[in-house]
């Protein structure tokens, strides 16, 4: 992969989960620091200069949410949250508190690695500055000219649709919760009008997806939010 091995901090209390996550990450060329407490996790995050943190929300020594709040005070390192909880509110809470992505237990190694790759790519892109052209599927968005093409056909987007799309592109691969989208696109006074987001996402899909009922790129994370996936999974 890279000349310098990327570093991951894994905060998880279950030894066996740590084991297979570590195996999977090391096979991808990561250096992994494991810890089974949130306290140690914060110390590691500060001292190991990690490129990624994988955090289990259900830690015995405290609330993962507080960990996120603390961490976001001084670091923007990508965080993937592992959650065994039932409620979607926990996921929304974690994403709102600054987590980049989440995985619900049980999860497979494949899923984990896909998320890890997306997170590290986003980090790399942010460091390099985004190009003016963004492509997914057969859609090509020119961010400097503000034009959208599907194949060769120019697509007309309304101002809101375009803002929505550029928000998704800016956070490509990351889960955006409804509240974030409303705040960014419609402004802070509309954070309760969740159906706006759904309706406009529908419009975007109609215009950009090949089969809007089975979207490949603009994906719904049910009851949580949306995610733009640049490369379709299959």
């Amino acid at each position: 992969m890279a000349e310098q091995q990327p570093v991951a901090v894994l905060v998880e209390d279950e030894r066996q989960i740590r084991r297979f996550v570590r195996t999977a990450l090391e096979a991808e060329g990561w250096t992994v620091h494991e810890t089974d407490t949130l306290r140690q996790g914060l110390i590691d995050a500060a001292t190991r200069k990690p490129d990624l943190i994988i955090l289990d929300l259900g830690m015995p020594d405290g609330d993962g949410m507080e960990f996120l709040h603390d961490l976001r005070g001084w670091s923007s390192v990508p965080v993937i949250v592992l959650s065994a909880r039932v409620g979607e509110q926990d996921k929304i809470g974690a994403l709102d508190a600054g987590a980049d992505d989440y995985l619900t237990k049980p999860f497979g190694v494949g899923e984990l690695l896909a998320r890890v790759r997306a997170a590290s790519r986003r980090r790399r892109d942010m460091g390099a500055g985004m190009g003016s052209i963004f492509e997914f599927g057969d859609v090509r968005v020119d961010l400097s000219l503000r034009t959208v093409h599907k194949g060769d056909v120019p697509i007309h987007l309304t101002p809101i649709e375009y803002r929505l799309l550029s928000l998704l592109i800016a956070n490509s691969g990351k889960v955006l919760i409804h509240r974030q989208i409303l705040r960014e696109v419609w402004g802070p006074s509309h954070t309760d009008d969740g159906h706006y987001v759904r309706v406009y996402m529908g419009h975007l899909r109609q215009k950009l997806e090949r089969d809007p009922a089975q979207p490949k790129h603009i994906l719904t994370e049910t009851a949580v939010g949306y995610r733009l996936v640049q490369t379709a999974r299959d």
Binding site: E14, Q16, I17, F20, V21, A84, K105, F107, G108
Partner: peptide, 11 residues
Amino acid sequence: TPLTVLVGLAE
């Protein structure tokens, strides 16, 4: 938790 371990280790 054990199911996660099972799925993960098997994979």
